[in-house]
Amino acid sequence: MDGRQSAHSRCDTSSNNEVRRYRERRTMTQKKLADEFGLSERTIHRWETGRHRNPQLLSVRRVADALSLDPVEHESLIDAAVSVSAVCEGRAGR
Rank of each mutant, 00 (worst) to 15 (best):
M1N: 10
M1Q: 06
D2E: 11
D2G: 07
G3K: 13
G3L: 14
S6V: 08
S6K: 14
S6A: 14
S6G: 08
S6Q: 10
H8F: 10
H8Q: 13
S9M: 03
C11K: 13
S14V: 12
S15G: 10
S15C: 10
S15A: 13
N16C: 01
N16E: 04
E18W: 11
R20T: 02
Y22F: 15
E24Q: 15
R25I: 00
R25K: 11
R26W: 06
T27R: 15
M28D: 03
Q30M: 15
L33Y: 13
L33K: 04
A34I: 05
D35W: 01
F37D: 06
F37Y: 08
L39K: 15
S40I: 03
S40V: 06
R42F: 08
T43I: 12
T43A: 15
T43P: 05
H45E: 11
E48L: 01
T49D: 05
G50E: 05
R51C: 02
R51L: 02
H52A: 02
H52L: 07
R53A: 15
N54Y: 08
N54M: 05
Q56C: 04
Q56G: 11
L57T: 09
L57C: 06
L58Q: 08
V60K: 05
V60C: 12
R61A: 09
V63P: 00
D65M: 07
A66I: 06
L67F: 06
S68A: 10
L69S: 08
L69F: 11
D70Y: 04
P71Q: 03
V72Q: 13
H74V: 01
E75Y: 03
E75C: 02
S76L: 10
V84R: 14
V84A: 04
S85L: 06
S85P: 00
V87G: 00
V87S: 02
C88Y: 05
R91I: 12
A92F: 12
G93E: 13
G93S: 15
G93A: 11
G93H: 12
